[in-house]
Design a protein around this nucleic acid. Structure first.
Lengths: 334, 334
DNA sequence: ACAGGCTTTGCATACGCTTGCAAGCTGAGG
DNA sequence: CCTCAGCTTGCAAGCGTATGCAAAGCCTGT
């Protein structure tokens, strides 16, 4: 219909009131009488008026936009996270500005956009760059939350799963299955997530007097994990169990183990991942995994972050959300 | 460091110039001399100044934000699309406001946010609601592009894959394999995408004098497709080939066929999907699929949409991006 | 009937930037 | 030496909204 948007001014004129009245009519809890509000609403509806969030942001210096930095959405954990975050933030009246941080453009460009758009807060769900970005955001006074990772840096909130406990659970599971040569495929070396999972895994093995039988780095990528698996299987005494730092890599490993090497899973080799993403439950994959509740994690993240907006002095918390081991055919035949 | 942002005013004072000069220094192609720009940049760097995109939007009435409406990111095609769209739009200086349209809140709330934030354009990648939303956006004068679907409504651009050609290719493939009882699992009934794929599929079968041997609706969901498959296999003469309107549903079908019914794929039943999402290439899935190049589609979408911004009178185009049949183990043993 | 309080309304300013306009400056041509 | 064109630069007016402040009603209790 019309290319131009109605303004509060126009609505005011149509309703025979002041522009302030229009503003108040659209502000919950503002000082305005019911009849006036009704009159304004009528005029607003007639003109198809919507308050301009841009203008509102300018004056309130609150954009009601949260920057979400993600990367490598091929890992199916993140789409779930994104969907959950979007739901939770929208429910709290905020929107998502989605930035994908391909390392090509680096942290600087990402930070630049984040700052220019005056996002109220930032959620970092990208492995790479996240520490630097977190620091920079904090320096700029923006509340930051790391999703599915942590940092030693102070003032940065985080929501993670039970990485250490999960790693331990998987080790115990392998041990219970009688496996003696368990290997680990790490994500990225300096990622807290991968390190914690590995630590737990080692502890679990140590309880049974076992040590790691092999270790490779998969970089959280499909191809990287496939190559890592080939390396592991090339050893003189190949492992009889592999724990990959996430499902995505575990699935890559599964492909190599079964199809490149013709081994039987779980017969010759037990396999486990982390996250319990949707594909893990597909019958043809049936991957044992330590589940991370993406929905619950997102809820906590949204809650924590937005409460930091209201009370900046609030203690920044590192939250850990409980998960559980899901045993499937990749480790234990039905 | 500081919780507050530097303003152009402050930079101007620090550099001993007018505020307009600062603005021009940050506007490519603005009328400003090199030395002045350098001086401003120095002061800006010193203060950590970033132009406030909000304020800029208010006056230019260009937010440089594109609303992307998605739903059901569990279908792995969409994460890829999102990643590609983000890359392409960022490269063109635009950002993504991500809205997930769960049908719970409906089209109205989504439209409302889109309009309030004055997005420059909208990309609809959600099956549900997309026609209504497209209409509404157009009525509000916002350029709209449907991604991976079309509509009869005028004035709405779209980018799709070769749905009809793809469907036909799969039918021909089935026929060449000697299959005589091919069934189809539709997405959503009133989705152009599913309808076109079905049409092509029927045409391909007809070329060989065959008709559809069964048909169910899966609603593009995993569970829906699983149920649809059970229905198909419950027939007296079950199909010997199934084409699902997308990979996500085809994978669900695969699970049922192999694990619920204990049939052999492709021996007893050939299976094909559409999109060629990443999981289709996993060895344990090895799903035959008609590939849609998400990256190329995203590039075209971004290009088309942003050019509509500059030249509103530009003819709205429906673009079709070529794909190709990828044959894997789900239809043809190695 | 009147004072004092609370609620409702309008006025005017501010948010941080872009941009049309006019003034100032430069150098070339006459 | 003067004129005029072409660049640069500053001035000032908005963009659409929120909100402090003061004015205006309204009601209650005496």
């Amino acid at each position: 219909m019309e290319g131009k948007h109605a303004t509060a001014e126009e609505v005011a004129r149509a309703a025979g009131v002041s522009q302030s009245a229009v503003s108040r009519a659209f502000t919950p809890g503002a000082s305005i009488s019911a009849p006036l509000r009704a009159r304004v609403n009528a005029a607003a509806d007639a003109l198809g008026y919507r308050p301009n969030a841009i203008a509102r942001s300018l004056i309130t210096s609150r954009s009601r936009i949260v920057g979400v930095v993600a990367a490598y959405l091929h890992n199916h954990f993140y789409p779930s996270v994104l969907e959950a975050l979007s739901r939770e933030l929208q429910a709290r009246g905020h929107q998502i500005l989605l930035l994908t941080a391909d390392m090509a453009q680096g942290a600087d460009a990402t930070l630049d956009t984040l700052l220019r758009y005056r996002v109220d807060a930032v959620i970092l769900a990208s492995v790479t760059l996240s520490s630097r970005l977190a620091q920079a955001c904090r320096a700029a006074g923006i509340p930051v939350l790391l999703f599915n990772r942590t940092t030693r840096a102070p003032g940065v909130a985080s929501v993670t799963g039970e990485n250490r406990i999960g790693g331990r659970a998987i080790a115990r599971h392998f041990v219970a299955l009688g496996r003696r040569r368990a290997a680990f495929i790490a994500g990225v070396e300096d990622s807290s997530t991968s390190r914690e999972r590995e630590r737990g895994f080692l502890e679990g093995l140590a309880e049974a007097g076992l040590a790691l039988h092999g270790r490779q780095v998969g970089g959280y990528r499909y191809d990287g994990a496939a190559e890592a698996t080939r390396q592991l299987l090339r050893q003189r005494h190949p492992p009889d169990a592999i724990f990959a730092a996430n499902d995505h890599m575990a699935i890559a490993a599964m492909g190599v183990v079964r199809h490149d090497c013709g081994l039987d899973v779980p017969g010759d080799l037990a396999l486990a991942g982390f996250d319990d993403t949707e594909p893990a439950a597909w019958p043809d994959i049936a991957l044992t995994s330590y589940a991370q509740p993406a929905g619950e994690m997102a809820r906590r993240a949204a809650e924590a972050l937005l409460s930091m907006l209201d009370r900046p002095a609030l203690t920044v918390r590192r939250q850990v959300v409980a998960g559980r081991l899901i045993i499937r055919g990749s480790s234990q035949a039905a």
